[in-house]
Design a protein around this nucleic acid. Structure first.
Lengths: 224, 224
DNA sequence: ATCGCAACTTAAGCAAGCTTAACTTTTTTG
DNA sequence: CAAAAAAGTTAAGCTTGCTTAAGTTGCGAT
């Protein structure tokens, strides 16, 4: 038995993938340990196994990177996760802050046949309910427009709200409460030096968003 | 930690439940071992644990029966299984012989919240695509009309095809091929002593069903 | 440059859920 | 009803995926 994939391994590969993609660096033991809520020792252990199976390249004390083979599996897990999220929102009408945890479990128990049917049913969508790109069956990610954290947006410009981290259910809950949904057009009224907050107007409503929030949501430039 | 439920335990409880319900007797070590494709020793092991947790009553060499508490969990697993099966057929258009295996995995990874939404979405259905009753949220099974194996049906009477075992994908495949779907009305033309087969007419078509098939599909009397 | 600390690895060990092999109990049957 | 067969149990041991504790490495601050 050389390369049996398990729920645990899928989660390790997904975590490394997310780290590589979001941070653009080799994943460190500590970061992955935090991400998966396990001890550092567990990461070192698994890193050896995944390395032996050719799914990551790993050198002691030097961090981890996915191989082509490992990335293929990670993309597949991410695909299943994001398709499930969209499916639950679109079909069952769940809120976009209710789907991450469900998808986290379903993603490991979905055959290729089933996920392809879901993909087909949804019309081969490109983005999940939080604006993350959905890998296609053959593992390619749709082109994403250039996006930046709202925190870096310029005063006087207009942006479209295009992405938020799906893990932060509390944040999404807040966004729902203030009616700030994905694809909302927002105008940057001001950026306050005082508390580093951002004042935005959308749908005729003006609110102030804290630094932390403005760093967590991503926007695409519409009008300078 | 007294009573953590796991995938494995859910499967043991479900197997014992099915045995109790279908056969109406105490489940034996051997039968459950076959059902779950594990060794007898594994069953004895788990029987002790489930017994300690108060989920089954178990006496060495005497077989196993669910307690009220164990039955509650088993009914819940069965509920999740059958709702998923119906959902996959109704919403994604899977065939009734494609859903058992998928449901077998999804049933363990579905929160109460999600399964209740699926239940609601389907309109609180009473039967799954194979005619098995779906336990309600509070654990009650819908009243099932008196049904018998087709093999015991009487010549000259008319029946409705109301149930087939969801595990036998090959049989269901055959039934699809000959256009014999659930809820089809069928007239018993003849019962041959020679090979113990049953000749039935449905939708203007007459075919002969082997003893094994006639024992595996269940019908409800319509007209004597 | 090196000291000290954070990050990382190793080692030993644990729980779950299996296995096989040996042994015991129950059931069947001639 | 006794002996053989079948069913069930026990014991020892394995793998996976974790833990904690102890030891090692690398690196930033002085």
């Amino acid at each position: 038995m050389v390369c049996m994939s398990t729920v645990s391994k899928e989660n390790y590969l997904k975590a490394i993938f997310n780290y590589n993609v979001n941070i653009g660096e080799s994943a460190t033991t500590k970061k992955i340990a935090e991400e998966l809520s396990v001890s550092n020792a567990a990461i070192t252990d698994m890193a050896k196994k995944l390395s032996e199976e050719g799914l990551i390249s790993y050198e002691k004390y030097k961090g981890m990177e996915l191989t082509t083979e490992g990335e293929k599996i990670a993309l597949n897990v991410v695909r299943r996760h994001r398709l499930w999220e969209l499916f639950l929102v679109k079909v069952l009408g769940l809120n976009w802050n209710e789907v991450h945890e469900e998808a986290e479990k379903l993603e490991h128990q979905t055959s290729e046949f089933l996920i392809d049917r879901i993909d087909e049913f949804l019309g081969y969508p490109e983005f999940d309910p939080h604006g993350h790109p959905i890998p296609s069956k053959n593992g390619t990610l749709p082109k994403t427009p250039k996006i930046i954290p709202l925190y870096e947006a310029e005063k006087g410009s207009t942006y479209e709200f295009v992405r938020v981290n799906d893990r932060d259910s509390e944040l999404i809950n807040y966004l729902m409460k203030v009616g700030l949904l994905l694809n909302t057009e927002m105008f940057i009224e001001d950026k306050l030096k005082f508390d580093e907050s951002t004042m935005v107007t959308y749908n005729g409503k003006t609110i102030s968003l804290s630094k932390k929030i403005a760093e967590s949501i991503y926007v695409k430039l519409l009008k300078k």
